[in-house]
Design a protein around this nucleic acid. Sequence first.
DNA 1: TTATTTTAATACCGATCGGTATTTAAATAG
DNA 2: CTATTTAAATACCGATCGGTATTAAAATAA
Lengths: 208, 208
Amino acid sequence: MPRGRPRKCDPEVVLRKAMTLFWENGFDATSMNDVAVATGMAKPGLYECFGDKNALYAKALKLYFKEYGEPGLQCIRASNQPVSTALRQYLENVAAGAGDPECPSGCFIVNSIIGSAQSDSEIKDLIRDIINQRLDVLIEYLSVAKEKGELTAETDPEALALYFAGQEAAIAVLAREGAEPEKLGKFIDIAMKTLPQVSAEELAAGQG
Amino acid sequence: MPRGRPRKCDPEVVLRKAMTLFWENGFDATSMNDVAVATGMAKPGLYECFGDKNALYAKALKLYFKEYGEPGLQCIRASNQPVSTALRQYLENVAAGAGDPECPSGCFIVNSIIGSAQSDSEIKDLIRDIINQRLDVLIEYLSVAKEKGELTAETDPEALALYFAGQEAAIAVLAREGAEPEKLGKFIDIAMKTLPQVSAEELAAGQG
DNA sequence: TTATTTTAATACCGATCGGTATTTAAATAG
DNA sequence: CTATTTAAATACCGATCGGTATTAAAATAA
């Protein structure tokens, strides 16, 4: 046991709770007092643990990306499944997160993009970094799929990556509107029709 | 000329300016003082003309829908062009509005959806009404197109309408991220590939 | 025990918020 | 001219904001 009075609250638990508050209500509508009441950690403790409100928000956003964003990207990166399967799973994972009844609806990152106009520059940079990471993973994955012959020669990996990034945003907004999971499923069915896939026979012929 | 001291500011101009402030910065980050300074109408005048802050926001959102939402819906309703042309124009109109350098980026309605968690019930109802109006127009249009044989018999008009509503949200978020118009154009190209269109020959054969 | 360290808890700071009462200015009616 | 009407302009209200100084409590070290 360390020297002084023991902590009442686990900072990790506090940060997770702060994340859900910012996710649900946004930066402005979540006061430090709200966080203090919801977490049980008094305001001076919050400032000591996390810095000021901007720093707390940035840490919450990083935690969100680590928990809800990176795993999906990692699945894409490591996927050895057909491109349509991998990308469908990717969007279904997004829909599962955005529509999870245990969490605020929608996507904290999308919410932050919308509200970023008056964010401080550290937060803007963080958002930009997250957006670019996601786009780069999608571009890389689609480029490889094209090289492997799974996607037609006319495929534009960058444009298609932006399309899928847009589908994530769409799912987040629709979930925030209250769209049921079943409707999000149908949405994904339609969104996946855009893939310029090479058929299995063509692929076999091309590789043989 | 009416009886008393003449108005310094045209309320319509003031409301339009308030609209751009709320559109750019959102409800919480736009203070009544900000509106007063930006418009030249002092705070008591704002309250006398528009009611409280919630009422001003609601009026600004209604103005936005009238100027940026309804014309596009009217085009869809009145369209006698091929379904792919009409819907492409619809999305291009959305992209033009969301990416207009003269205005805040993105879509005020999408921003309001994201921020609606802590809105008062009048604003929530207004947002819900706008969403439903748009969806109803799309469903009706797609249903008619299916009946006319322009879309395949397997087409689900409700699901496809939600898809297009989602594309609007996607375009709004991508524009808010700073996506250039050219990239939004490519996005629309891909998004339009989902249409389960009947070919011109099939359509002629079916009608003949 | 007593001193020290670390945190919790309370109270408080100036600034800003949404909203309004009051006073001043600009027009018309008589 | 004076009275009246309407709006502008200023000042102000209590509440809440982000952030902090201060005090009280709970642990260890001696």
